[in-house]
């Protein structure tokens, strides 16, 4: 018994001193999506480690296989940064009181999300149909925008909440002549060529509204923010045709995404990647972003995503020019170009 206690004591002591010597560790959570596969590559190719070393920290890149769970874990405090869309960034961490900064705008969906219809040719054919989708997700937002642009409302359709893991198989095996789903890539790619199938609306009709981000806690240290941004834009150079690492990078990402190189390249075509930091900065500063966030927050509030809050102004969204949409005293989502600008000016060193 005595020996065990002494052993434990020594172990704890060793462990404690071991921890003290370590550099501070920060954690980034990501989930599978075309625009986020670069994080896996950044980790595997040692780019993350390189940038983390540069700023004297440790960065763990963790794959959380369930998208919503990754955001929930980030919001609950398990991670310091996480990949998510602009809508989920607003409704989960920001409404949940976690002050979050949009560190990197990676891309926007430019056809990665779509409404897939059997035996139909236009959005107006959706009337009266039963539509399977992940409710309250960007798919739902896409559908709401499509209906709105075609003078329909959600009351004209029936929504069935369907898990994204099964939605593709369910559509392909559905015998109903009016089967309809709203989904995103890579599922979209798998179902769009099925017989009698048409994509009647996709996110290229609302460009720049479904934005994929890397979000970081606003109070995270500068070193972490700089290291992530630096690593990301280094990967972006690898992803451009002509770079010596291009094929290697694309092959790796296609593999982690669970598809072939051709499939991954096809997905990249419908993903408007901001390969250059300067492009992302421009997008971030545009007036269009404010308009988009206004649509998004109205949609979110109308669908009860603001929980108990009495108006959509409950949470403030800050833009690079300092203007705030919503409550100035409760700013929880910040579009910040500081670090992307540094990357554009090569000042991250």
């Amino acid at each position: 018994m005595k020996r065990i206690i002494i052993g434990l004591f020594v172990f704890t002591l060793l462990f404690a001193t071991g921890c003290q010597q370590d550099k501070p560790t920060f954690k980034l959570a990501w989930s599978h999506y075309t625009g986020w596969e670069p994080w896996a590559y950044a980790e595997d190719a040692g780019i993350i480690a390189k940038w983390a070393d540069k700023f004297g920290i440790n960065i763990e890149v963790v794959l959380v296989n369930d998208y919503i769970e990754s955001i929930n874990l980030y919001t609950a405090g398990e991670f310091d940064a996480c990949t998510m869309t602009n809508m989920d960034g607003l409704t989960i961490p920001a409404v949940g009181g976690v002050d979050s900064t949009v560190l990197i705008i990676g891309d926007f969906s430019n056809g990665n999300d779509g409404i897939v219809v059997k035996n139909g040719g236009s959005v107006s054919d959706l009337k009266g149909r039963e539509i399977k989708l992940v409710q309250l997700s960007v798919s739902h937002y896409l559908l709401a925008r499509a209906l709105e642009m075609n003078a329909l409302t959600e009351k004209d359709v029936t929504l069935v909440n369907t898990s994204d893991a099964d939605i593709g198989t369910l559509y392909l095996s559905d015998t109903s002549p009016t089967a309809t789903i709203v989904t995103w890539n890579p599922i979209l790619m798998q179902v769009r060529d099925a017989p009698d199938t048409t994509v009647v609306f996709d996110s290229s009709s609302i460009p720049g509204e479904i934005i994929d981000l890397a979000v970081v806690k606003t109070d995270a240290p500068e070193s972490f923010k700089k290291a992530l941004t630096g690593a990301w834009y280094e990967v972006m150079t690898h992803m451009q045709d002509g770079h010596p690492k291009y094929n290697e990078a694309i092959e790796f990402m296609a593999k982690t995404a669970g598809g072939t190189v051709d499939e991954f390249k096809a997905q990249l075509k419908t993903t408007a990647m901001f390969y250059e930091a300067a492009e992302a900065v421009d997008f971030n500063k545009s007036a269009k972003l404010k308009e988009t966030m206004e649509y998004v927050r109205t949609f979110s509030f109308d669908h009860g995503l603001y929980a108990e809050a009495e108006s959509k102004d409950y949470v403030g969204i800050e833009f690079p020019d300092g203007s705030v949409l919503g409550n100035q005293d409760n700013v929880k989502l910040r579009f910040d170009v500081t670090y992307m600008q540094m990357a554009a000016d090569s000042k991250l060193e």
Binding site: I68, Q135, L159, V160, N161, S163, A307
Partner: peptide, 23 residues
């Protein structure tokens, strides 16, 4: 109910889980 549904106790739980509505 979590996989494909329009109502039910499991449906509601998985729906509001999308915005972490533990309340």
């Amino acid at each position: 109910e979590a996989i494909a549904s329009q109502n039910g106790l499991g449906y509601r739980i998985f729906l509001v889980r999308r915005y972490l509505a533990m309340d």
